[in-house]
Simulated scan of single mutants.
Amino acid sequence: MDAQFAGDTSQRRACQSQAHLDELVLFPCARHHGSLGALLRQYSAQMGSSTSPLDKDMIARRLAAVRAELGLSQAALAEQVGLSKRSYIHYERGEREVPTGLVKALYDLHGIDPVWLMSGTDEAPQRARQAGIDFQLVDKVVAALDRELGKVGRKMRPEHRARVMKALYQMGVEQGRISPEIVADVVAVAVARGR
């Protein structure tokens, strides 16, 4: 078995392919954490092979910062998240794109904010505010942003998309809802700034 990410032992034994692994790792996440699984699947679809070397390098630096803050060796963190040491080292060096399963594992095990890991600007690792996340609102933000981007025929780089999603989420929390007008205004500003 060539599984990169481990769940419990029964999941590990049942996993025979990467597609099955994604089903075991990501879809249960959606059951336990609302839309985090959907967010990670969407990130995976967006990133594809378009992650630039600079993005990979920045993500690699954030991975190293997480490991340093946890006080773990590469081998120890790799074991915790169910990776071989060699695979983990490739991610921390920026030689490979970080798979969504690793992002999920760091969130589940250590509360690392997936948005910070993929697009954060702070050097210090950021923890997700699990108790305060309104996953239904996150789903609405993602859907509304996708609709608006489709309407205007635009795409956003992942780090800009993450910033727009964060802004929309914060507005939704403050106003208690997310309206198409707010989404259109935020997207118009982001597009005007060349994002």
Rank of each mutant, 00 (worst) to 15 (best):
G71R: 15
H20G: 08
A38F: 07
G7H: 05
L70W: 07
H33M: 01
S49H: 15
S17I: 00
F5W: 09
F27M: 04
Q4E: 06
F27S: 05
Q18K: 15
A68H: 13
M1P: 04
I59M: 10
A64T: 01
R61P: 02
A6H: 11
D57K: 14
D57M: 13
P53A: 10
A30Y: 04
A30H: 12
R13P: 02
Q4F: 02
M1A: 06
L70I: 00
M58F: 07
S10I: 06
Q74K: 14
Q42Y: 04
L54Y: 15
D22Q: 09
D2Q: 13
H33S: 03
A45Q: 12
Q11E: 07
A19E: 12
A45Y: 15
R67I: 01
S35A: 12
S73R: 05
H20D: 04
L39Y: 10
F5A: 02
Y43K: 09
A14N: 09
L26R: 13
M47K: 09
D8H: 11
S44M: 07
A6Q: 08
S17G: 02
Q46Y: 10
S73T: 06
A64Y: 01
L24S: 00
L39N: 11
A75T: 07
T51Y: 10
L54G: 10
Q74G: 13
A19Y: 09
A45F: 11
R67M: 11
E69T: 12
P53W: 08
P53D: 15
A6K: 09
M1T: 02
A68S: 10
L70A: 03
L24D: 02
V66T: 03
L26H: 14
Q16G: 10
Q74R: 13
A65P: 00
E69W: 01
E23P: 00
C15M: 14
Q18V: 14
A19Q: 12
R62I: 03
A60N: 09
S35D: 13
L72Q: 15
D2E: 10
S17P: 02
A14Y: 08
A45V: 06
Q11N: 12
M1E: 00
Q11M: 13
D22P: 02
T9Y: 09
A6P: 00
A45P: 05
R67S: 06
D8L: 00
S73W: 01
L63N: 00
D22L: 06
G48Q: 14
S10A: 13
K56A: 14
G34Q: 04
R67G: 04
R67H: 11
G34N: 02
Q18N: 11
A14V: 01
A30F: 05
A19D: 10
D8I: 04
M47Y: 08
L72R: 07
A19R: 13
H32F: 07
R31H: 09
S52F: 14
A60R: 01
L70D: 00
I59H: 03
M47I: 12
G71E: 11
A38N: 10
C15G: 07
L36H: 00
R13A: 10
R31G: 04
E69I: 01
F5G: 00
L40T: 04
F5T: 02
L26Q: 10
C29T: 05
R41S: 10
Q74W: 14
H20L: 15
D2V: 01
P28H: 06
S17Y: 05
A14F: 05
E23G: 03
S17W: 00
R61E: 07
K56H: 15
K56N: 15
D8M: 08
L26S: 03
C15I: 07
D8R: 09
